[in-house]
């Protein structure tokens, strides 16, 4: 098979301009994108730098963007991204500075992982043998430890694009792994730590991490689990909790979202609520105030929505 590859290049030792180089290489039929890159770097252009090791989607070295989307190139078949022999574009991961070509600086990424206290902290005397834990608990956790910390989710996270301080999907998925481990004795402190600013409540559910995760870990699902755990643990004094409660309440009572109230409810302190005044003024000036004005009306048929809520709440209680 002929593979046409356009590769993002950057050489800090050379002229330091970001540009693309184009290569065409011959590969076996079932070749992966990584095979193309290895062929280029071994046989065509030895100046190309790529991180890779296991070739079987387990070490997490080879995350980068193919045609704009983060993935592990070692398990991305050429035939999937270029079914008709099209040229593909390979770039380094996003949300991280580039060191050279396809190699990015991962220090911030690792520091965020380190910040979640990523080791188990049992309390009390250790049992003589193993901790007795139901297999289903372990099976649930095994889903999270499938994460190989490749960084693909962080690369394509839309929150990190605007707020680099966000803990990010990889660290938060790992955080869940510890918070939910029945052997850990510090669940409450953990949930408090992960609830802080830049933590679990800053995810906007954009689904990017679920889509790009090459291991099917779906980090966002674990972030949502963390939120449930935090609320269940009584950690309700957070804008995020108020936000979701207000949202649910408004939809339940009126059939749709009361945006003005949602904003007001989300902030806990009066001084924070006051900060919304200029936002409100700007909303009016830009003509973005809802047609109903500041007054929120019940939608026709809202009682059906209310019934759905009551039905579900009944099931959960």
């Amino acid at each position: 098979m002929e593979a046409k590859v356009r590769v993002a290049r950057y050489d800090p030792d050379g002229n330091r301009d970001h540009h693309f180089d184009e290569y065409t290489v011959q590969l076996a039929e079932n070749a992966m994108v990584l095979d193309a890159l290895i062929d280029i770097r071994e046989n065509v252009d030895e100046t190309l730098s790529v991180r890779c090791s296991c070739r079987s989607a387990i070490c997490g070295s080879c995350a980068m963007r193919v045609n704009g989307k983060a993935t592990l190139v070692c398990n991305t078949p050429m035939s999937r991204v270029a079914p008709n022999g099209e040229q593909i574009t390979v770039e380094p991961m996003g949300n991280m500075p580039v060191l050279k070509d396809l190699v990015v600086d991962l220090e911030v990424f690792w520091n965020k992982v380190k910040a979640i206290t990523p080791w188990i902290q049992p309390e009390g005397p250790k049992p003589e043998r193993e901790y007795i834990v139901a297999d289903e608990h372990m099976q649930n956790l095994i889903n999270t430890v499938q994460c190989i910390l490749c960084g693909a989710c962080v690369s394509d996270c839309t929150v990190l694009e605007v707020d680099p301080s966000f803990m990010g999907p990889a660290a938060l998925a790992k955080a869940y792994r510890f918070a939910a481990d029945p052997r850990d004795g510090h669940k409450q402190e953990r949930l408090e730590l992960y609830s802080q600013a830049s933590g679990m409540w800053d995810c906007t559910h954009c689904f990017q991490c679920v889509e790009v995760c090459p291991k099917g870990v779906a980090p966002m699902d674990w972030i949502l689990e963390l939120r449930r755990e935090a609320e269940a643990a009584g950690l309700k004094d957070h804008n995020g909790v108020r936000h979701s409660e207000s949202l649910a309440h408004s939809v339940k009572e009126s059939g749709w979202l009361d945006e003005a109230k949602l904003a007001m409810d989300s902030y806990g302190k009066f001084s924070d609520k006051l900060k919304l005044v200029p936002v409100g003024v700007r909303t009016i000036l830009k003509g973005k105030m809802p047609k109903t004005g500041p007054f929120h009306h019940k939608r026709p048929g809202a009682e059906h929505v209310t019934r759905i809520f009551e039905e579900l709440e009944g099931k959960h209680s």
């Binding site: 080791w119 188990i120 049992p122 250790k126 193993e130 901790y131 834990v133 139901a134 297999d135 372990m138 099976q139 956790l141 095994i142 430890v145 481990d181 052997r183």
Partner: peptide
């Protein structure tokens, strides 16, 4: 004890 999630 270090935290490995062994199958049970």
């Amino acid at each position: 004890h270090m935290g490995v999630i062994f199958n049970r």
